[in-house]
């Protein structure tokens, strides 16, 4: 889990080009959108593409997306529960 969280943080920084940040700046429990990292709807699309491309996770509805993309931890939980690309 710890390794996955670290990898996810690195991938998020790269995918969203958060040039000012390092993985340690991201609290895995904190919300990614609005209050936490301050991400927006385009970032949500980028993270959706990231999850599908790297981990085979398809987000089917907006409601599901809100839960899965809530934080780094919720993304990691989702991958562990149903991801195809993670052992």
């Amino acid at each position: 889990m710890e390794k996955l969280v670290q990898t996810l943080k690195e991938e998020i920084i790269e995918a969203l080009n958060l040039v000012e940040m390092v993985p340690e700046d991201i609290n895995e429990e904190a919300p990614l959108f609005v209050d936490g990292l301050g991400l927006d709807s385009i970032d949500a699309l980028e993270l959706t593409v990231l999850l599908e491309k790297k981990y085979g996770i398809k987000i089917k509805t907006a409601e599901e997306g809100k839960k899965i993309l809530y934080s780094v931890k919720s993304m990691a939980d989702c991958i562990i529960a149903g991801g195809k690309a993670w052992d």
Binding site: E46, V49, E52, K53
Partner: peptide
């Protein structure tokens, strides 16, 4: 490269 799937939105926009 992705055969027209999984396109990142930012470069398109």
């Amino acid at each position: 490269n992705n055969e027209e799937k999984l396109l990142n939105p930012t470069p398109f926009i």
